[in-house]
Design a protein around this nucleic acid. Sequence first.
RNA 1: AGGCGCGUAGCUCAGGGGGAGAGCGCUACCUUGACACGGUAGAAGUCAGCGGUUCAAAUCCGCUCGCGCCUACCA
Length: 884
Amino acid sequence: MNPFDKAFNPAQFEARVEARWREGDLFRARPDTPGSAFSMVIPPPNITGRLHMGHALNNTLQDILARWHRMHGSDVLWLPGTDHAGIATQMVVERELIREGSGREALGREEFVRRVWKWKEEYGGAIASQLRRLGASCDWSRERFTLDPGLSRAVREVFVRLYEEGLIYRDKFIVNWCPGCRTAVSDLEVLPQETRGQLTTIAYPFAEGGGSIHVATTRPETMLGDTGVAVHPEDPRYRALIGRRVVLPLVGREIPIVADPFVDPQFGTGAVKVTPAHDPNDFAAAQRTGLPAIVVMDGQARMNDAVPAPYRGLDRFAARERVLADLGAAGAIVAVREHFHNVGRCQRCQTVIEPLLSTQWFVRVKPLAAPAQQAVADGRVRFTPAHWVNSYNEWMENIHDWCISRQLWWGHQIPAWHCGNCAHITVARDTPAACGGCGGTALRQDPDVLDTWFSSALWPFSTLGWPESTPELRRYYPTTILVTAFDILFFWVARMIMMGLKFMGDVPFRQVYIHGIVRDAQGQKMSKTRGNVIDPLEVIERHGTDALRFTMAAMATPGSDLPLAEERLAGYRAFANKIWNATRFVVMNLDESAANSPPPGLPPHAELTLPDRWILSRLQGLTRSVGASIEACRFDEAANALYQFLWHEYCDWYLEMAKPFLVAAAQPAETARTRAVMVEVLDAVLRLMHPFMPFLTEELWSRIPHAGDLLAVAPLPVPDPSLDDPVAEADMAIVMEIVGRVRNIRAELNIDPGRRLPLLYDTREERPARTLAATAAILTSLARLDRLEAGGRLDREGPAARAVAVGVDLAVPLAGVLDLEAERRRLQREVDRLTTERDGHARKLANPDFLERARPEAVEKTRHAHAEVAERLERLGRTVASIS
RNA sequence: AGGCGCGUAGCUCAGGGGGAGAGCGCUACCUUGACACGGUAGAAGUCAGCGGUUCAAAUCCGCUCGCGCCUACCA
């Protein structure tokens, strides 16, 4: 074992501890063992991913749950894995090819896909090893990848079944087309962005002459694909024009004026140009009114051959300029004004999305959404925090069909085959030998792949072996809980619920814990462009994994984001250091041989001193509250309770009180008893703390007397009601108050901290008297006294600083040193404070309504508090009088 | 436009009908044999504003202001 360094240095043990866990094979789920199971699937990070703060937060919280339940005795499955991330991964590899002077087209599909697999083998594992570094206690033997054979089989099975039920269909429809990625994307992958643009009003002349109708547009280039003009059927300005024809400028095509209620008479001119192939509203209107659709752009958003020659081949934005110039020259522009509107951009590449009519595959989601909504409504899936149910319901109610085909090469190729002879499409689990329509054998598989989220939606059961009924599937589905951030509530969570219900007949998880996202100290989203990214791996190097994890846990307040500041990390690193040194202190005060022997166990209760009984009682409270907090996913509460207990109760008070019993001059029996209690409590708190700070606690636990091999699989402490001791807690409150009073005197009267002081006390009450007598050695040590004397008149020794504690008058004789003026000010402040407090209580008690209507306990409590403060104030008043 | 959330100490945030709290920061003092990544003491708040309910409101309700986010539409 390494020497016990004075300072905590995580780099020294983290890797070693991780290796011990790995060698111990501790995190493997055991589906065949009896007892309760706890299961969770990881939100699979992209194979292109590198650990960021979002992962750190998400996986820290999951790991806390996994470790907690493992130590609680459950059979824990935390299933890890990665997502093939269609577009993202394809882009990474394409960029690589471009750097090599090649490209995806040059390689061809088969070779390209081989290349991406190669990339995956090389780099796709990085994120998993970074998760290990974070301490993630996943069952790595069950790691999955969304393109694994097993998961691919599940994908095909789901696709075929949905197709056979008519819930997947292929149709020509307006979709969100990304000209940058050259694929369709779903509604969720389009991010609206407020943009300053122009609203141009154009005159379309009537075919038979005699004027024109004015239409307004923000995308003038699309007019080349107009097939009509729409007005509201009730609009009196235009009613007479319905059915007349206009000539499309620059194109010369005659198009009709039609009526459709989608037109808002209040907006623009109240007349709308209709471009069915490039606008969803126009498409819908065209379907209702029978207008044809003309696609005017290619996959890269360049004008195609359907437009007049001058515009062909122009990029859509160049075409826009050209159209505007030509319309201007032709005198067709009526007005141009600045206009702010939302422009949809691609989530991946930020290219402006072009609505485009094309043939795609869709999932009819409404029939899946209804049961999914029901499952949440009746509590089969519980959302934490619950308010997310609102967003979930709203989305489910307004859900549109899901475009699942992507014009990519990396992903699950759609299991549909087109026939060379007939129009039939054969959808099958395995490559069919012949067309299901005509029996022809000239089959070509649909080139498109599925949206990555399609396979993610199956993750909770595809990873457990579905469609086989495996032991894993039977035991771990539905999973206990899903931990995720709100930004993928619709992308992922909602779809998993739909698919789980559809194919497993049950929800995929019983609870969803939705956490916030990590931001910078100013609350800004972290992004490379802002340059405010805090890299978790760098934090781990600077402060250690445990400080990072504890920060994540302590900041994980439900329903809010986490503004992460460097000081916060440093603060929890200091906490780790505190734990390190507390353990160091304990170990230094044990027999040298003790570390490798089992803990001595608690001495008989009758031998325990007040501090022993106090800290043990506090520990029971801590054990209960941490357990309750974890159950409620209040990681912040649990972390704060541990922090408070370890630092401000165990270190600040218990270990300080233990010191007099650990010196060579102490009674051997007292030393042994103190050692036993301080080890017992430290052992318990290291166990409770382990899920939060696994590396540090594992390392320290191995250095104190412990039973068992590894803390990661040691049992959690169980609250022991026989150690609850409210009397000890109340008595310790007296001791703590008296020590505080003396320290206050010392600090406020500027007395040398090193100087030992005499303390006289006077009490007529039995309990404080007994407590003080029993804790004389402790008081002497903590308050740095040289004399502690009971009874008698406190003023007999001349000038003294005074204080009153609960039931006790105190005097610190300070002949020759006391600054009387300072002392008077100090006491006056205390008198003022108590007076305010007493008057507050008195006011309430003088109110008959309060006495009559408030709960009797509340009245009693106020009476008690009033009496107490009044009594104390009276004693203080006498004390002040006696010195002046 | 609709929905959700938030406004509490200088900063970041807990709390949520009867005592205004934590961490960091700040001030003063202290290298006391675990820890200066430490110790002790202290200063610091109109709990956004207005109104209501209540014996009692930071807490519940309504409105206003400010901030953030989500969803939809925007020719």
